[in-house]
Design a protein around this nucleic acid. Structure first.
Lengths: 132, 132
DNA sequence: ATATAAACAGTAATGATTACTATTTGCATT
DNA sequence: AATGCAAATAGTAATCATTACTGTTTATAT
C-alpha cells in the first residue's frame, strides 16, 4: 500500500484487494461482497463500494463498463482491453498492440487531454462457439 | 423504416428517431423523454426505453456506455468512438483510423466472434482546457 | 492509556431501467 | 366505412446497482 493510498489499514480492504489480486473473473461489487463475506461475514456492501471507489481513485484498480448492468473491477494495471461474451456473460482480458497508444491517438485527433479509455468488445467467446 | 424494423408505425417512435437524427449531444433516455414531451406531452418514459431498445436491437442506433450513470444513444451508424469530458460532461464523437479494424483485430487475438465494441475515452475536452 | 479522525455496519434513499396491466391504435380484411 | 386483432402505448409498480447517512468501532499518532 503506497503513499497515494488510503491512510489507514483495514482488514476489509485487505480482503477485497487480496481477492482481486487472485482472480481472473473481473468481478462485480456484489461478487466481491459474496466472496469477502466468507471471511468477514458481517462486512457491509457499502464498505465494498467505498473501498472499490477509493482504490479506483488512486489507480490501484480499474473499473470496466461491461455494459451488462453492473460495473466490473480489475486489478491489472497494465493497459488492456476486455471482451464480454453475450452468451455466457464471461468477461476476459484482451491484450492488443494498440492498447498503449489509443490515448495518444485520441488526444491528437481531438485536441483534448485524454486520461484513460475503456474498450470493451462484445460477441461470442471461443468456448461458447465450440459448444454449438 | 426498413423491413428489419418494427412492424407498425407510431408517432412516438417517429419523434424519438427524428430527435436522434438531428442532435449531436448523444442524449440519455431521459433527455430524449424531455425533448419528445414538448411534442407529445403524455408520452411515457417506458415508451422511450422500449423504442430505444428495439432500435438498438435492429442496429438503427447504438448505445454508448459513457460511464457516468446513464446510457447515451447515437444514431450515427458508421463505426466511431466517443470522448467524455470529466469536467463538463459533454460526450463527443471521435473518428479514429482503427475504428473499423478493431473488431477484426480483437477476433484474431481472442479467437472469438466479435460483433461490436464500445470505445470511450475520458479526459478534459478542448473547450474546458481553454477556460482554465 | 487516550484522543481523534478514518473506516465501518446497517439501513435508507436515489436514480436508471425493466416489468406489468389495462387501454388505445395502426392496419389488414371485409 | 365498420370490424377484429395484435402491436404499441400510458401510467404505475418493481427491480437492481449504487450512493448517502448515522451512530459505532478501530487504527494509529501522541
Amino acid at each position: 500500500m503506497n503513499e497515494n493510498s488510503k491512510k489507514r489499514y483495514s482488514r476489509q480492504r485487505e480482503c477485497i484487494v487480496e481477492f482481486l489480486k487472485n482472480t481472473e473473473i473481473h468481478p462485480t461489487a456484489n461478487m466481491i461482497y459474496d466472496k469477502v463475506r466468507e471471511e468477514i461475514p458481517n462486512i457491509s456492501l457499502g464498505t465494498v463500494y467505498r473501498n472499490l471507489s477509493e482504490l479506483t481513485r488512486f489507480g490501484e484498480i480499474i473499473k470496466i463498463e461491461s455494459g451488462d448492468g453492473a460495473e466490473r473491477y480489475d486489478m491489472r494495471i497494465v493497459p488492456h482491453s476486455h471482451f464480454v461474451c453475450k452468451n455466457c456473460g464471461e468477461v476476459s482480458d484482451l491484450f492488443l498492440d494498440c492498447d498503449k497508444e489509443l490515448d495518444k491517438i485520441a488526444a491528437s485527433v481531438s485536441g483534448a487531454e485524454v486520461a484513460s479509455h475503456n474498450l470493451v468488445f462484445n460477441g461470442v467467446c471461443q468456448k461458447c462457439i465450440s459448444k454449438k
